[in-house]
Every structure is written in structure tokens, then in C-alpha cells.
Design a protein around this nucleic acid. Structure first.
Lengths: 324, 324
DNA sequence: GTGAAAGCGCTAACAA
DNA sequence: TTGTTAGCGCTTTCAC
């Protein structure tokens, strides 16, 4: 392994000079720079990032905690975060919590050990106290952690409004909302509260099906959909996450329900799966890329100490389809 | 920030003793251990992972390079890799190459800088020479890089055989294979070669639709499917990646083709999307979790210098459905 | 412009 | 059993 001092010796200069050349800092005469660069090339020098990190107490690595990778919403979020971090010369350390006993705790410990400069946290935490004594920068992605941790999220209230208006425009009288486990504190809960409020105000009946914690895979939704149509045979509209609505679409077809004529289905999230079936599914689209970019910008501001308050909320919009 | 020497001073011992206690190494008397632990607790000491990494020249981090996250196959692979790495106390650094100009090169550079102990590489490299002078351990995931880099993969030849036999059992006479860009060197190419060979041997006509490089999203496949049925109206069987077959299923339905009666559709990969439609799609399933665990085991063997030759290949199997 | 030297926080021989 | 000391490889201040 060739170190900076090896390059220095080869070039006949001091290590500090090599450092200056590498990092294009300070003043170095053209002549010595050439010498140093030649030496680096000759010895195939590659600097140690770890040593650099120790010296600068900075790793250019951001940790990302999400429940799952192979889920349409979180998958798109992770992809967008990775791209946004890459654009800022940062690496992404990924942790998924859905199938791990203590994954979140372990990961937060790692953060404390300063192996990452900051964290973007979007898992469905049950134990929010984990974050109480973390000193490093954290941005919460669509989650409430505690009141010192800022949170980037979609304007879900608006999302709920868009959904309600859509159902009302079609004259729906009985909506069922498929919602996530309510023990998790997330702004996303706003969308179904607000949709329900607006629908109620117009005399529409609203029922709710609550999923268990971390149950957001297709089979869970398929089972829920079965149950839903059995329990509420006269439902004429369903609102829920993409996969929940995809499941409803298929169960409804099997039951011979006509979509959209006597059943309106509206997906919340608007990921690629809503474009992947026989018919495109109408959806309220969360602007995932923008949310990811905002999260990255915020967490890096915190890391760099250039944090400035600003918008933490981004508006959703309707993605048209054939189901509502 | 509290350092190891602060703890040492507080406990009235030397730094090295604190180190021994932390890492549960060597012999430390019960009394001093208690003192040290009390001091750590009192000062809320958290060791610096970076300093540790420099000292040990080891980061317990493995880099993972894949084309995409929000793709059913790669998403499941990444999820499985993350879980397998977690089980081995390793962190995962993730890089996606699909939408980046020079992502792969940048990432390999990072590996050279020893910020990761090794790499699991599954991207669709066009420039395999990148890997020529990397010293650190690399395992290729279903890709040929060069002859010094071992490669973990599914037994695709067997996969092709399973597929061919399935079509033959149903008496198909004209199969179309939707395949990936052939400029990428991957064992996965084996499956359609072998399927075609076996089908040819039984007098079955086989045509091929080749996708462009890195075009494996649903819209690309939907366009290809349109084209496919137009160009080969008498096709009675299609073999291709999950999303390709999902697209065929929907296009076929729109065209009024009856599946499976006059059109057999067989997906290759068998990810969750094949279970997510109106009907489950029959598939050749790659054992993703096993492949991920094997890749992790191998790369860590290399890192630890305990590398031993062994199985690099895992058999696929048929996942039943209603389309073939 | 360039070099010497101290420091980033931890580990591991070796001595005591 | 515990402490001393010398690294790990890079950055940066401050003389020269």
C-alpha cells in the first residue's frame, strides 16, 4: 500500500505538499505540482478516505433508514435519495428495518459513532425515544420523531383534499379508506383525516380499514381487500396506498364489480405500480424526487452548519388514470 | 466530544485498558472493568468508528452496485443483500448506476480509496476494464467482469430448460423471447440460449426481441410488447423478465388474446410483481435470498482471507401461476 | 512556496 | 493485569 509519504519521497517534497496538490489547496508552484502528480501516477497512489475522514471528522456519508427496499414507494424514495446524495458527492448507507428485530437501534448507534455525517430517517419507528440523545443531524422523512427533528413531507392535507374532491365529483356516497397502522406518528395520516372530514361534510359515509404495523406488502392488502368488499358490499369508492388500491382493483374484478363505473379507486402515492396494470390507476402523486432532494439539501445544510429554515412541505398532484 | 483518553482519565486507567474493556479483549480485572464502564456511562462515551477503522484498516462496509433500486428484481436483491450484510455486522453502501453518467467509475474509485472492504457488483457494466486494477475483494453478482473476479449466479441453463419444458408440455409452436441488451456479459444470457436450443430441437420456432441497454422499466416493456404482437401475430408463448411478461399480459388482454389458452406467458425471475396482478404469473424463480447470502458470504471470506472455493451457482425453480 | 510537527481517536506490541 | 509507546494515513498550522 502506498502512502502519502511514499509519494512525497518519490517526488522529493514533504507530505504536506502532496496533500496540497491532491486537494488543490493553497499555493503550489507549477513545477512541484508536476513532480507530485508524476509521482502519484508512477506509484499508482490512491489516498485513504478513512484517514482523511478521521482528520477532517467528516465522512461524506449519509445514512438512510427506511422500512423496505422492495416496496414501490420506499424503493422510489431510496433511489431518489441515492441520486440526490450522489449529486452532492455523498455516499448512502442504507438500513431497512421492516424485517429486523433491532435494526433501527443498531443503525442509530452507528450514527452516534460518527460513521455517518447525518441521517435521513423514514422508518416506521415505534420507539421514538431512540432519537432523544443523538447529537448528529437528522431529517425525518414523513415521520414525527421529536420536536427538535425537522421533518420533510408532502402536503398530505392537500392530498386528502384532492382525493375527496375527486370522489365528490363522481358522486360517490360510501368511501372506504385503507390506512396504515395508527401507532406510527406520520404526517401522512393527515390525508385520510382531511379526506374524511371533507367527505363527511358532504354527507358521504366513510369507513376505515386499518392495516397492522409494517404490513404494506401486496398479500396483506389483498387479504384486506377481500375483507373490505365483504364487510362493505355497497362501497363505491376506495382510497389507499398504491398497493392497497391495486389489490382492490383485482379483487373487485374477481367479484365482478365494474371500475370505475360503480366503484372508484384512488391510489395514494402514485408510484410506478399504478402505471403497470391493465389500466392505469388514478392516483394522488407524492413528488418523490422533490421530497428526496429537499431532504438531502436539508440534512447537508445541518451537517455544514449552513442550516436555514425554509420549505419542508411539497404539494402533491393528481395523476390521471382509468379508475377514478 | 469525549475521547477514549477522557474515559481513561475519569476511570484512572490507561487508554489501552479502556480499549480492552470496550472490545472485550485480553484480561481485565473485574474491578477496573467496572470502573471503566462506569466512566463510559458517566461521560456518555461513544467510540469513533472512523478512528477504529483507520487503526484496523477495516470498515465493515461492503459496497453494492446495482442498476436500480425501484425495479422488482434489483430491489429484492438489494433488500436481501442488506439483510445478509446486517447479519454479518456489516453496513451496506449503495450505488445505483442506471441514471448516472459515471456512477460506476466513481464508485469503483471509492472502493480503491478503501472506504469499503469489498464490493458486490451487479450493474450492467459496459466498461469492464474498470475492474482490472482493483485490489480489494469483488464478487460479481450475475455478471462477467474478468476472469479473476468470481461470480455468483443462478443456474440459468437450468432455468432455460425449465422454461422450454414448460412450453413444450403445452404444445407451443412459436415462442418469442424478450431478452436484455446483449452487449452486457451476464450468465443470465444462458437461459434464453438454452431455452431456444431445446425448443429448436423440438421443431419450435423461436424469435427474439432484444431490449436496449438498461431499458428494463415497465413502459419500455409495454412498448416492446405492442411491437411483439404486431410483428409475430401467431406467437403462442413468450418468455422474458417479470416486467416484460406483465406487459405482455396486459397488451395481450387488450388485443383479446386468451391467456393461457392460446398464449402462454412465462416470467423469468419470479419476483413479487408476478403475484401482484389479476392472475398470478407463472415464473421461473431465481432464489434471490440465497444468491444474496452466498454473495455476502463469499465477499466476506475474501475480506477475511478465509476464502474457499465452493458453490457459486444456485438452482432456480418454477413458481406456479395461471399464465403458462 | 514549502516543510516540520502536531493532531484526528483508536489499537496493539511490548514492557512492567 | 495494566501502562507506555508507536503507529494507522491524512490535514493543517505555522515557521522558514
Amino acid at each position: 500500500m502506498v502512502r502519502i509519504k511514499d509519494v512525497a519521497k518519490e517526488a522529493g517534497v514533504a507530505a504536506s505538499t502532496v496533500s496540497l496538490v491532491m486537494n488543490k489547496k493553497g499555493y503550489v508552484s507549477e513545477a512541484t505540482r508536476q513532480k507530485v502528480e508524476a509521482a502519484m501516477k508512477k506509484l499508482k497512489y490512491v489516498p485513504s478516505e478513512v484517514a482523511r475522514n478521521l482528520s477532517l471528522s467528516r465522512t461524506n456519508t449519509i445514512g438512510v433508514i427506511m422500512p423496505s427496499v422492495s416496496h414501490p414507494f420506499f424503493g422510489e424514495v431510496i433511489e431518489a435519495l441515492e441520486a440526490a446524495l450522489y449529486d452532492q458527492n455523498c455516499k448512502m448507507m442504507l438500513c431497512c428495518t421492516q424485517h429486523k428485530e433491532n435494526g433501527e437501534r443498531t443503525f442509530v448507534d452507528m450514527l452516534k459513532r460518527r460513521t455517518m455525517d447525518g441521517i435521513i430517517m423514514g422508518a416506521h419507528s415505534l420507539d421514538v425515544s431512540l432519537y432523544a440523545d443523538v447529537q448528529q443531524p437528522i431529517v425525518a422523512f414523513d415521520r414525527y420523531l421529536n420536536d427538535r427533528i425537522p421533518i420533510v413531507h408532502c402536503n398530505h392535507k392537500k392530498g386528502g383534499q384532492l382525493a375527496a374532491e375527486r370522489f365528490l365529483a363522481h358522486g360517490c356516497r360510501h368511501i372506504v379508506e385503507v390506512i396504515g397502522y395508527q401507532g406510527v406518528q406520520t404526517p401522512a395520516n393527515e390525508y385520510h383525516f382531511n379526506a374524511a372530514d371533507i367527505l363527511h361534510a358532504h354527507g358521504v359515509r366513510v369507513d376505515v380499514v386499518e392495516m397492522p404495523w409494517n404490513a404494506f406488502d401486496y398479500p396483506s392488502f389483498a387479504a384486506a381487500a377481500q375483507q373490505l368488499f365483504q364487510q362493505y358490499p355497497d362501497v363505491d369508492g376506495v382510497l389507499g396506498a398504491d398497493l392497497a388500491i391495486a389489490a382492490c382493483l383485482h379483487v373487485a374484478a374477481a367479484l365482478g364489480r365494474r371500475v370505475p363505473d360503480d366503484l372508484r379507486l384512488l391510489a395514494y402515492d402514485g408510484t410506478a405500480v399504478t402505471r403497470m396494470g391493465l389500466e392505469p390507476i388514478t392516483a394522488v402523486r407524492q413528488p418523490i424526487r422533490e421530497l428526496a432532494e429537499l431532504s438531502v439539501r436539508k440534512v447537508l445544510q445541518m451537517v455544514n452548519g449552513t442550516y436555514e429554515d425554509g420549505p419542508w412541505v411539497i404539494d402533491p398532484f393528481i395523476l390521471d388514470g382509468n379508475t377514478c
